[in-house]
Every structure is written in structure tokens, then in C-alpha cells.
């Protein structure tokens, strides 16, 4: 009986040790970095896949599309844009491009539109299906013509967290030129609502939701994002989430 008790207590100790040992290793920078290498492996395997996100029918659209982002911007700039129905909004394209430019919302709306009914998969685990209409990002990039040595497209957004840190995201050129990567202007047949990222929201249906940046103000073509904010290529990436968000 004593032996049974000894065995039971050693098994309980082994199981109970899992969380504290894991937590201690998690707080070790070297081990933490080692774990993160798996993300680079995923990016190498899948990062530039040409696979298309599944398309759904109108009947599949979620009746309620959740809001799960930083709060809607409250800056005077955004308030002013909102007040005139985004007529003064212009998407800036800057950085390593032949023709830096500002594209007014009306011009974006006048370009060839693509509609997709795709599923939005949040990193937290929920998903929602919406019908998105807008301009394929590659059409907009072609207007500005990125330099040959350009590697990433950075999206600078108007939303900020409670510390004042702005939201941003990035894609590599292959992801940016993916046929389903969209600068969405409409959700479910109506102009995107302010809380869904009006007037222009990125849609990257082949990756998790945090890539689909809301309230996009500027597209910046760069050779590296190491000098931007936390250097990891995105607001959530700077807080430990993988840069390649396809997993």
C-alpha cells in the first residue's frame, strides 16, 4: 500500500510539475527563441503557397460578424474623415515604389472590384464568414510599381492601443500579390462600418485575422521591417505572435 501511495504521488508530482516547468522554460529567452523557430519553418513551407481560401455561398454568411480588434480610432483625423463620409480619405502608397501616390477612396471604388465570400479565422479560435468587396492589393501595387528589390508591404493603420502604439501589419511580396489579398471597401454589400475598419480594410483570407488590418491609412513598400516599432513586422507579432499567420 505504501508503494502504491508512493507511485500515485510520484505520478501526481510528475503531472503537477508540467505547468511550472513549462512556465520556467517559457520565461527562458533561449528556449523561447527555440520554440519560435517553428514559425519560420511554417513560413518556409506554406508562406508563399498559391492555395486559394475556400469560397462560400451567400447562405453561409455569418449573421453577426464579431468585432475583436483595437477600438475604432477616435483621433481628430479619423473623426474628420468620418464626418465627411471619407470623401477626404486617400490611401497613401510610399516607400520603395516608382510612383509614390495618394489614391482617393472614390478612385479605389472605381477600380475593378473583386468579391469574395471567405472565412475569417481569428487566432483566438473563432471564425466568421463575410462577403468582402474591394480592390485586389496587387492591382493597387501595380499602379505604384514596387522596386525590384522590395521585399515587404507594410500596412500602417489609424487605430492605436491604450498605450498609443499604432497598429500595423506586413506581408511579403508573394502574399501581397496573392489573388485573394484584398483592400476591402465593402462587407456584405455595404460600405465597411467604422468598427469593421472603414473605409479600407485589408483582407488576407489565407492567414489568421490579425493580418487583415483594419483602418488602413498607408501602404509602405520596404526592404525590411526590422526598424519598424518592435521589428517583428506587425502589432501582434511584436507581442509574440508568428509573422506568418497561416497556422
Amino acid at each position: 500500500m505504501k508503494r502504491r501511495l508512493f507511485l500515485a504521488s510520484s505520478i501526481a508530482a510528475a503531472l503537477g510539475g508540467c505547468a511550472p516547468i513549462g512556465t520556467a522554460l517559457n520565461d527562458n529567452p533561449g528556449f523561447h527563441h527555440l520554440l519560435g523557430l517553428e514559425g519560420a519553418l511554417d513560413a518556409a513551407i506554406l508562406g508563399n503557397s498559391a492555395g486559394l481560401a475556400r469560397q462560400y455561398s451567400i447562405a453561409d454568411i455569418s449573421p453577426h460578424f464579431p468585432i475583436d480588434s483595437l477600438p475604432t480610432p477616435t483621433s481628430s483625423t479619423y473623426e474628420a474623415l468620418l464626418a465627411n463620409g471619407f470623401r477626404s480619405y486617400a490611401l497613401a502608397i510610399s516607400g520603395a515604389v516608382e510612383r509614390p501616390m495618394h489614391i482617393p477612396l472614390a478612385r479605389l471604388a472605381g477600380m475593378a472590384q473583386q468579391s469574395q465570400i471567405t472565412r475569417h479565422d481569428c487566432v483566438e479560435g473563432w471564425s466568421a464568414i463575410g462577403a468582402w468587396t474591394g480592390v485586389p492589393l496587387r492591382d493597387v501595387l501595380r499602379l505604384a510599381t514596387p522596386h525590384r528589390d522590395a521585399r515587404y508591404v507594410v500596412f500602417r493603420c489609424m487605430d492605436r492601443d491604450d498605450q498609443g502604439t499604432p497598429y500595423y501589419e506586413s506581408l511579403d511580396m508573394a502574399q501581397a500579390y496573392h489573388p485573394q489579398t484584398l483592400l476591402a471597401l465593402q462587407l456584405n454589400g455595404r460600405p465597411i462600418r467604422p468598427d469593421h475598419g472603414a473605409p479600407v480594410r485589408l483582407r488576407v483570407p489565407t492567414q489568421l485575422g490579425y493580418k487583415s488590418a483594419k483602418w488602413v491609412a498607408e501602404i509602405q513598400v520596404v526592404g525590411s521591417f526590422a526598424h519598424l516599432y518592435g521589428g517583428k513586422g506587425g502589432y501582434w507579432e511584436d507581442q509574440g505572435y508568428e509573422w506568418y499567420a497561416g497556422i
Binding site: G22, N26, H32, L34, L35, G36, L37, E38, G39, D42, V123, E124, W236, Q239, G240, Y241, E242, I247
Partner: peptide
């Protein structure tokens, strides 16, 4: 969540 994912996928 970010660290849980790192552990899980590794």
C-alpha cells in the same frame, strides 16, 4: 495565447 501556440506547434 502567443506562447501557448509556440509550445503547441513546436
Amino acid at each position: 495565447l502567443a506562447d501557448g501556440r509556440r509550445w503547441h506547434f513546436f
